[in-house]
Design a protein around this nucleic acid. Structure first.
Lengths: 165, 165
DNA sequence: CTGCTTGCAAAGTGTTTGCAGGCCC
DNA sequence: GGGCCTGCAAACACTTTGCAAGCAG
């Protein structure tokens, strides 16, 4: 409850501050909408869709238009501050870039095709794959943008009682 | 050009015939639309979107409605005869199930985030990943449904002259 | 004949665009 | 103050749904 130490890692300031710095460094503008989007993504534990971001941003900064969320997310992605991932058929999902979080590895998730559940998995899972792609196909894999689809044990064992989505 | 040997592997007849057999085995109906969809997918070298399938089906069987393509693809996917993959932001892409082609491994592709190009890669690329997911996360990976995103050398080397999509 | 499939039209969802006004730098 | 960002409305692409008619089994 110490207001002076909101985070366990004081050495890493605030990802939002760092992001703002980088926006300026790129010569782009820091606006209420963009800052709010960054804050919301920073506070979110995992992926957020554009719509979820819209809802949360409007709690803190009412009046921000849905279109602006899309444009802000797009701009932040171009600046490398936000990463977009596609999971299944659904809306695109966004998270802060690992570089802002001090993480060397991005968060990696698997999604169950049947029940739609999302689980986090070992971040280095695709390390070998990335190396092989670089060597054999001259292709630089973006592990964050990869959505691994399949089935969780619960659904794979023929459990049909799950909500199909 | 020998009409009696259209395929180098005569032991495997026609994926469409096999698919039709399985449709019947599941107690579902074999229709012109479904057969045409299967034929088109069988003849296609790689992924087809629903719309591409629609266009090609209508060349062979004019009058088939776009909605029917969606419903046919959905039905065939439920029967395990067709696999759907999402690539980037674009429309869903479909291919015949590997089980129909006698292949043990599905086709695997990488897509360049910048220029949108799709390349086929080694089919066993994700074998280790699948094993790890099974062991560590009790998760059955569906390699066919995975779209690997990243950048091709051409775009990664700062080449900005590409059509951005 | 029974009811799964289809055609048609319309709605739905997620996302993008054009334009005028507003705010950041 | 110049021009990037935004709000608003409309368009957009892809996909789904309701209903009546049609065809497979």
């Amino acid at each position: 409850m110490d207001p002076a130490a909101p985070h366990p890692t004081p050495s890493r300031p605030d990802p939002v501050e760092e992001a703002v710095r980088r926006i300026r460094a790129h010569g782009e503008r820091v606006t209420v909408a963009r800052t709010a989007v960054l804050r919301v993504l920073a506070d979110a534990g995992s992926y957020l869709t554009a719509d979820q971001t819209f809802v949360r941003v409007n709690r803190a900064a009412p009046g921000v238009h849905r279109t602006t969320i899309y444009r802000a997310l797009d701009a932040l992605e171009r600046l490398g501050l936000v990463v977009q991932t596609r999971m299944g058929q659904d809306a695109a999902a966004y998270q802060l870039s690992p570089s802002l979080l001090g993480a060397t590895e991005p968060r990696l998730h698997v999604i169950c095709r049947t029940c739609g559940r999302v689980d986090e998995v070992a971040a280095d899972l695709l390390a070998d794959v990335a190396q092989r792609l670089a060597a054999e196909n001259q292709f630089t894999l973006d592990p964050t943008a990869v959505a691994l689809t399949g089935q969780c044990t619960h659904c794979a064992t023929g459990n049909r009682s799950n909500s199909p989505r």
